[in-house]
Simulated assay, not measured.
Amino acid sequence: MKIDPNLLEFAKSMRHTATDAEHLMWQILRAKRFMDLKFCRQHVIKPYIVDFYCHEIGLVVELDGGQYGTDDAVEYDAERTKFLEPLGLTVVRYWNHDVLGRIDVVLEHLWQVCDELRVN
């Protein structure tokens, strides 16, 4: 399946404008630093671009900022999840402020999710 070049270019531009939370999470996930799993960032799963993706275990990690508390954003996230889960993917979401202020709690939860997905 050919991916729209505009979508790929947008994903690439998003890598260069990462939030502080995305940057911190990428430093942890990149280069198989977390559980020896290979993660990609700003990965295209047409028609969406997900924040982080691990093909090996079918995991999508999304980081949400303050704008995600709105009804429209909640509805959009629900649509994305409804699209991704039937593809066999697991979607987990973390708030940016938790990544920046409680990274230990976020990583403990992420470790549990990855560990369960590896077993299945």
Results as ranks from 00 to 15, higher is better:
M14G: 05
Q112H: 13
M35P: 03
V119S: 04
I57D: 01
T19H: 07
H23E: 09
Y94K: 05
T17L: 05
Y68K: 11
W95T: 05
Y68N: 12
E62C: 04
G58C: 07
L107C: 08
L63K: 02
D64T: 09
R41N: 10
V119P: 00
T19S: 15
E22H: 03
I57W: 00
V119F: 04
K32H: 13
D71S: 13
N96I: 07
D64L: 09
G65N: 02
T70E: 09
F10K: 15
A73D: 08
E75Q: 15
Y48H: 10
L87N: 03
K82L: 13
A73L: 06
A18K: 06
A78I: 07
R41G: 08
K12Y: 12
V61S: 01
G66W: 12
C114W: 01
F34A: 11
C40Q: 15
R41H: 14
L37D: 10
C114S: 12
D36I: 08
L24A: 12
F83I: 11
L89P: 02
W111H: 13
Y76N: 14
N6H: 12
L117W: 02
L63A: 08
E9H: 07
V99L: 03
T81P: 00
R30V: 05
V92F: 02
V60M: 02
H16N: 14
I28R: 03
W26C: 06
L63D: 01
D51C: 07
S13R: 15
T19F: 13
L110F: 00
L37V: 13
L89R: 02
H109T: 09
V99Y: 00
I45F: 07
R33S: 14
M14E: 13
N96S: 12
V44T: 11
H43S: 06
F52E: 03
K38I: 07
K32Y: 08
V50W: 00
E56G: 08
K2L: 07
F34H: 09
R41F: 06
W111Q: 13
V91A: 04
I103M: 14
S13E: 15
L59P: 03
M25L: 12
G101C: 10
